[in-house]
Amino acid sequence: MTMATAVKTQSQGRRLDLQVIGPIIALIALILIGMALNSNFLSYANITNVLARSAFIGIIAVGMTFVITAGGLDLSVGSMAAFVAGLMILVMNVLTDTMGVTLPVILLGIALALIAGVIAGLINGLLITKVGIEAFIVTLGTMGIYRSLITWLADGGTLSLGFEMRELYRPVYYGGIMGISWPIIAFVVIAILGEVVMRHTAFGRHCAAIGSNERVARYSSIAVLKVRLATYVLLGLLVGFAVVMYVPRLGSASASTGLLWELEAIAAVIIGGTLLKGGFGRIWGTVVGVLILSLIGNILNLTDFVSPYLNGAIQGVVIVLAVVLQRKSAADR
């Protein structure tokens, strides 16, 4: 970059517009393609399915947006989700033995998932801020640790919630109000809260400042380490929350739970226009990114358009295109 050929400066206005519109254009294009290829695409059931299944990654990606905006990264979220889910199931099964199939067991399970998420985020955050190890390395390490722990907890197999408990807990994923299922409601609420926090609170502004230039932030008397730590804890909490929504779906967790969630979440954040190097983040963009990723999978399942062997390639192309669309004129600068 340093020696880079300085090419002529272009006018600035257009770049901003494309940055805003880019992901939305991609989303609309996908919706149009989906409509053209399958008449059931816009059916209530399909839309509900797509939105509800986006909720886990979406909730996590909201947290990831804060981490990335503040110049960090967390690769451990997928494994963390699997581990927290396993722990939650294990504890709920034990509690069921003494307390029966009752609501308090579910509430305790939920509390445990949230606390476990916060602790896991705290561990990541402390290692990164207090010990001063790169986020990439720390979370790469904890990614392996949580993945092993869930495998060990499940003894290599699958941890399943007791059948009756599963029936009691089931409505948290499958139920809802006014025809909108709970995961969708939770996703929407968290996305709106996230957008407000990112744009309208000191915390969000501080995240962007730290990601933009950590020294400037420190010299501006921002508690850089505390804010950084808070982003990881927030992400951990949201992972816990995603697990609370995830467990009632299949009532089980195994070593393959949450596989590659971290990459999907990161991809969604970047597609949404947040800068990978930090300094700028937007939650609504992340939401669009999550929907784009979900829709690609959905459309590929709804059609025989391409060989299933090429699903990954299609996803890759759309991800890169969505980002190219918004960065194109930035490269001209």
Partner: peptide
């Protein structure tokens, strides 16, 4: 390097050290 966020606007830079004085929860 340490004074201003070059990729941010004037407003964000001006109030950065004193954000807590601008509004309680929301800025």
């Amino acid at each position: 390097g340490a004074g201003l966020l070059l990729d941010k606007g004037l407003r964000e830079n001006l109030t950065l050290p004193l954000l807590h004085k601008f509004g309680k929860i929301m800025i």
